[in-house]
Simulated assay, not measured.
Amino acid sequence: MAKNTTDTATSADPYETLGVKKTATQAEIKKAYRKLVRTSHPDINPDDPGAEARFVKVSAAYDLLKDPETRARFDAGEIDASGQEKPQRQYYRDYADAQRSSRDSAGFDGSGFEGMDPQDIFAEMFRQRGGGGGQQTHGFSARGRDLGYTLEVPFLDAARGGSAHITLPGEGQIDLKIPVGLRDGQTLRLRGKGGEGLGGGPRGDAQVKIHVKPHPLFRREDDTILLTLPITLAEAVLGAKVTVPTIHGDVALSIPKGSSSGKVLRLRGRGVERKGKAGDQLVELRIVLPKTIDDKLAACIEDWAKTNSDDPRAAMLKGVPR
């Protein structure tokens, strides 16, 4: 269901959601987002009932701020925190003001509209057109105004292409084609589906701004798909071949022996396809320990630790004054 942009409530401030200042760089915004995803993704935090809600909120905030153009429009107050257009001034007054400016610059002085309110000019034109004043206004026409709407599209439909239904006032339900690789915040134009024209003028267009729903597994940066993949301790230590979801279906992925959390593996050509070229999917590994550490596992780790002196923090702490 399409929503008129003037009827949508404003969401929480995206800067506050990501915990960054309004002066933050794009790199700082991305870093904050990735950090929050690790603590809010429902698959990584299955025991946290609030994880999914936080994940959706964080993803929506990042979708708004990751695009410099969309971020600039939000900072300028042109769109709200949900990415929707803020109400514009009334069309008829704007048009009338433009007509007055044009008339004044041309030295117009015989219209009979001098000193009238701009909205009254249109009322007088229509009254004359209907014969009420005995004088016909010839040659006046204007294109109808464009109407703005928002439409939520599932993540996979935006990435792979598809179709959606949108209901417009006076038009009923219309089929809308979703092109492959559609991005959050893009606008689809339906020509001739906007406001009625004046004096026989053409209708305006319906401009449908797309909001891509967050996906519980996938994230997107340009044409690259990002996925955090939970793996077991055994898979990380010994290596394994596991099944990984992609936007095009499941594939097999080999996890190298001795993989650490944070290691990123690349699946080429498994991202979003645009202009005949497909992006990649990046898979970030995250080791998930079993919920219960039994005596056998604990004893095994204790024996191993006695003969192993690796310190993963050694390089980090080297040279830091104490």
Rank of each mutant, 00 (worst) to 15 (best):
T137I: 15
R127H: 02
G115I: 01
G115T: 10
R89I: 06
Q84N: 12
G115F: 05
F122Y: 12
R73G: 00
I121H: 04
F108T: 14
R73Y: 01
F108S: 12
Y95I: 13
T137S: 07
F122N: 06
G112W: 07
I121C: 03
R73N: 04
Y92R: 07
Q128G: 12
Y92H: 02
F74K: 07
G107M: 04
G134M: 05
T137W: 14
Q128Y: 01
Y95M: 13
D94K: 15
G107L: 09
M116Y: 09
Q135N: 03
G115R: 12
Y92I: 10
D94N: 13
S105D: 03
F108Y: 13
M116E: 10
Q88N: 00
Q119G: 05
F126R: 15
F122M: 14
F113S: 08
G115M: 00
Q136L: 08
D94Q: 15
D80C: 01
K86T: 05
E85C: 03
M125R: 12
D109Y: 10
R73H: 06
F113P: 08
G77H: 10
Q128F: 09
Y95R: 12
F108K: 08
G83E: 00
Y92K: 05
G130I: 01
G133P: 00
G77E: 06
R89A: 12
S82M: 03
G134C: 01
A72H: 02
D80V: 05
R103C: 09
D104Y: 12
P87K: 03
A72V: 04
Y95Q: 14
S82T: 11
Q135F: 08
G107F: 02
F108N: 07
R103K: 08
Q135D: 03
D97V: 08
F74A: 02
D75Q: 11
A72T: 09
P87I: 09
Q128H: 08
D80F: 05
Q90G: 05
Y95F: 15
F74H: 10
A123G: 02
F74M: 07
Q90W: 04
D104M: 10
G139I: 04
A123Y: 05
Q135A: 09
R127V: 00
A98Y: 09
K86W: 08
S102P: 03
F113Y: 15
G139K: 11
R93C: 00
Q90D: 12
E85H: 00
G130D: 15
A123R: 14
A106N: 11
A106Q: 14
D94H: 11
T137N: 14
Y95D: 05
E78D: 09
E78Y: 05
G107D: 05
R93A: 07
G131C: 04
S102A: 13
P118Y: 02
G134L: 04
R103Y: 13
D104F: 04
D109W: 09
S105Q: 13
M116Q: 12
S102V: 13
Q90A: 03
D117L: 05
D109M: 11
G134P: 07
P87C: 09
Q90F: 03
Y95E: 05
A98G: 11
Q135H: 09
Q88F: 06
G112V: 00
F140K: 03
D104C: 07
D120G: 06
R127C: 07
S101Q: 15
